[in-house]
Design a protein around this nucleic acid. Structure first.
Length: 394
DNA sequence: TCTGTCACG
DNA sequence: ACGTACGTGACAGAC
């Protein structure tokens, strides 16, 4: 389904392209100086030879074609040689330049907008996907990424409004597992990661340190993917032993979640599929594979699908309700994009307050879980600078 | 066309 | 002993 599209400011992208070009050239010059010869940084093959043969750095993860040079691997080598940081920055900048800064202006149509295509039959979990161009992976996290995002703008006289489901997958976990701690935390509007850290660490919420909260956050998300002690250790800096103990304490505190995950794996083994709260199925053929690696990967898919898929179902219902409510309201606001747990709209400035209320009602009422669905609404003049609208102030 | 890498939720 | 977080799409290099 091709959609209305969103305006992009090709002037600012053009300026960004020239800035990036200069920085990338400077990085290349520095790298050639450090290595003593020219090479193609964009070639994983040449990069492997440079890092692991010429410079003698210790290779990490093995891949089909040799030794990995991905960001995680390079991150671990940063202290070993000054060229590593340059490679990481070069990678980031060329990625942004090639995929967004230079590509988007070419896809801009005569209305000044880029129009993506949403696929409804690609993702096995029930999510939408977005292609040509993919507008569900517009940069956000890095400085340069934020500049790219700021080039997405509303049409003249209007504003962008975004509405996202707060912690929707964790709320789905609370619903399907019936975990009392999690349900209570969402019902009383507490900081969910702090509450988790307090429960796991056996302290009061006020005593939770920033580090404890960070670890709890990683585990809260990781639970939905089948995180291992290895993965937690890598993402938090804990030792593998500490990570294992942390995960054990987590499942001790949230026994209903542990039981739910076990139940899903058993269901998948027995029936060969799993399903969302609304009955969307995903078949998991490898769930009984003899090969352990295949089987464990299948188990992670089985555990993840009901959570990711139920959230996707709720969003689809929320989109239908939003569309209906917009028609009935007679507002000029238009839906532009869906980014998994977020809707982006364009609206005349004077519609912002009533639109926010409409979105909270339409999206928030899309499903009745055992915990409330909270919707955060923001407004702005570009997709980076978005200001929260408080529910009561509306 | 496949592989590695990396942008997002 | 082994691998190690789910779901996507785009780009550049290698073949």
């Amino acid at each position: 389904m091709e959609v209305l599209g969103i305006a992009v400011d090709d002037g600012s992208l053009g300026a960004m392209s020239r800035e990036l070009h200069l920085r990338i050239q400077a990085l290349e010059a520095e790298m050639y100086e450090l290595s003593g010869h020219t090479f193609n940084v964009g070639s994983p093959q040449q990069l492997q030879r440079l890092l692991y043969d010429d410079l003698g750095l210790a290779a990490g993860r093995r891949i089909k074609t040799g030794r990995s040079t991905d960001a995680d691997t390079l991150e671990a080598l940063r202290e070993e040689h000054p060229i590593v940081d340059l490679i990481l920055e070069w990678r980031q900048l060329t990625k942004l330049k090639g995929t967004y800064v230079d590509a988007l202006p070419l896809l801009r149509e005569r209305d000044g907008r880029v129009h993506t295509t949403f696929n409804q039959t690609v993702a096995t979990t029930g999510r939408l996907s977005s292609a040509d161009p993919n507008l569900q992976n517009v940069p956000l996290r890095s400085e340069w990424g934020q500049r790219v995002r700021s080039a997405f703008v509303p049409d003249r006289g209007q504003v962008l409004v975004s509405a996202d489901y707060s912690q929707i997958e964790l709320r789905v976990v609370a619903h399907v597992s019936g975990e009392p701690e999690l349900i209570d935390a969402f019902r009383s509007g507490q900081d969910i990661h702090r509450r988790t850290a307090a429960a796991v660490g056996g302290v009061a919420p006020e005593e939770v340190t920033a580090e404890m909260r960070r670890s709890a956050k990683v585990v809260n998300f990781g639970v939905m993917y089948g995180l291992s002690d290895f993965g937690l250790a890598r993402d938090t800096g804990m030792s593998r032993e500490e990570a294992g103990a942390f995960i054990a304490a987590y499942f001790q505190s949230f026994g209903a979640i542990a039981a739910y995950l076990e139940g899903i794996r058993n269901f998948a083994r027995e029936w060969g599929y799993v399903e969302t709260v609304f009955g969307r199925r995903r078949y998991i053929p490898d769930i009984r594979a003899a090969n352990r690696q295949l089987r464990q990967a299948a188990e992670r898919m089985a555990v993840n699908m009901p959570m990711q898929g139920t959230a996707a179902d709720i969003m689809k219902l929320g989109m239908i309700r939003t569309d209906q409510a917009l028609r009935e309201s007679g507002m000029a606001a238009r839906l532009l994009l869906q980014v998994h747990d977020e809707l982006v709209l364009e609206a005349p400035r004077e519609e912002v307050e009533p639109l926010a209320a409409l979105l909270r009602e339409a999206m928030g009422g899309a499903a009745e879980l055992v915990v409330p669905l909270d919707v955060d609404v923001k407004v702005g003049d570009n997709w980076r600078d978005m200001t929260p609208l408080s529910p009561s102030a509306g």
